[in-house]
Amino acid sequence: MSLGSNLDLLTVTFYGTAIALILIGLYAALVKRSLIKILIGLSIVDSGINLLLVSIGYLKGGTAPIFSPAVIDKNPAMVDPVPQALVLTAIVIGFAVTAVALALVIRLYRHHKTVNIDEIKNLKW
């Protein structure tokens, strides 16, 4: 591990927050017994991943990758637009999966009148 050699505050803030979110989300998804909390965990993991992805595209001193009239002639350094586009896709897909998952939870609740996975045991968990 090469910690300490090149860690400044921003690195710790962005990567640290993102990794912390991923870990918190994974913990919730794996340990919690309520379907809703598991889903919240998965969403937190998604947020962490998205934050990490956007952080990777950051460039020190870079502007937003938009050639608005104010900056078009100045040719400034711009942050990487690719991760931003990828994150947009990832967010939409995350939303879609969450929506389907919530529908499944609604149906499980309708059936079993509970969202606790210990009480929904027709199939082995």
Partner: peptide
């Protein structure tokens, strides 16, 4: 999670932020 955290930190501490 500790194992995952170790590897994530290990990998991403080598990707310099804003570079």
């Amino acid at each position: 999670l500790a194992v995952v955290a170790y590897y994530l930190v290990d990998v991403f501490s080598q990707i310099k932020f804003g570079e």
